[in-house]
Design a protein around this nucleic acid. Sequence first.
DNA 1: CGAGAGTGGATAGCATTACTATCCATATTA
DNA 2: TAATATGGATAGTAATGCTATCCACTCTCG
Lengths: 214, 214
Amino acid sequence: MRMAELSRESGVPVATIKFYLREGLLPAGERTSPNQARYSREHVRRLRLIRALLEVGGLSLAQVTEVLDAVDADDLDQHKIFGVAQATVTQPGLDPDDDSEHAQAARERVHKLLVDHDWRVPPDWPPVNALARVIATIQELEPVLLQQLDARAELIGKVADLDVELLEGRSLEQQVEIVVAGTVLGDALMSAMRRVAQIDRSARKFTRPDDHDM
Amino acid sequence: MRMAELSRESGVPVATIKFYLREGLLPAGERTSPNQARYSREHVRRLRLIRALLEVGGLSLAQVTEVLDAVDADDLDQHKIFGVAQATVTQPGLDPDDDSEHAQAARERVHKLLVDHDWRVPPDWPPVNALARVIATIQELEPVLLQQLDARAELIGKVADLDVELLEGRSLEQQVEIVVAGTVLGDALMSAMRRVAQIDRSARKFTRPDDHDM
DNA sequence: CGAGAGTGGATAGCATTACTATCCATATTA
DNA sequence: TAATATGGATAGTAATGCTATCCACTCTCG
């Protein structure tokens, strides 16, 4: 497969493919002569992954680069699989030097959450810190959202059960690909479904029984 | 409250506040003389909302502008509340002209999802289309993620139940604020909790019983 | 074999986004 | 009254994600 076909198959402009090659997001093709190359199915797949992470997942090019490096790494073990995918996607956490009232309350709330739900994770794990930041922000903006935090955590725990269940009986490489896609596209999927479900619930709740569509 | 204090209270640099004023994200202060103004608690709150949507919610300034316009609008009714918040946050949908195999399969899958879960929503609602796009992308990248789509939809439905439950017995203005924060920060909250829960589940599943921390 | 299109590689340019900096005339404060 | 702050206008900036152009090859097709 040459450049033109790679571009057609993937839907990515030639100039952009060259840019990704320069940036190291896409591995070079197999040389057929000093300045010609041939590309494979793998290149198409990789391009599709890049576009999916960028457009659907909303990652930056820099984050995509990190994710791809993780996918290509060969020193992974079972315990690190979620970690590498999460590391690049996790939002900045709560500033550890911030000892304001809100920050401390948020840290305590997170701690309680971990204890109550028996989530055994290192207390300084970046996603834990990111969670603390989100909670701190909600706390000072719209604290009512935190009223059902435990109910939400319960549900999210079940989502995570599904997430790890998917890995059952697969090779490490497959697991990495599933976790990467599942982390980034999984967020997009859950957000999109949530919006649809909200409309349904809102319509049910606020439509009076004598309205036409009941 | 003058500019310097507003900046201190909100943590936003003076130059940035001036920029937001120019852009219309922050309403002008109350004039005390032709070229002096005084700001209120409301300005601090608005600034915090802007920063939360930008930094935690990951919205662009343009999206923040739209969201704030929706918050300020006074022609809302019960049915539109989720719609306005969602309209600005919803990702681009599946191209309606795309009749490729994947696109059609995704549309059918979404339709089935709506029917199976009795989600009564307009089939051309933007979030429905956005969902179709996410599903199409997953379909061609890592289709195994769709195996548990129904289980996930079930859980997300319960999340949406919580979302609307929060509105019970509140004024329309309060509802708008809760929906806006709940939509944007709610996504961030769920993603952050999911990451934490994943690590917990992954550790439980892949740690052998004789390992130290069991 | 040769003409025209395609290719890899290098370099430069561009549009957008979200600020940041400077200036200045007027206000406020000490 | 002198230092400082403010509102408003204008210009500049850094990062991001491409696009465009050029060039010396190389492949393809008649």
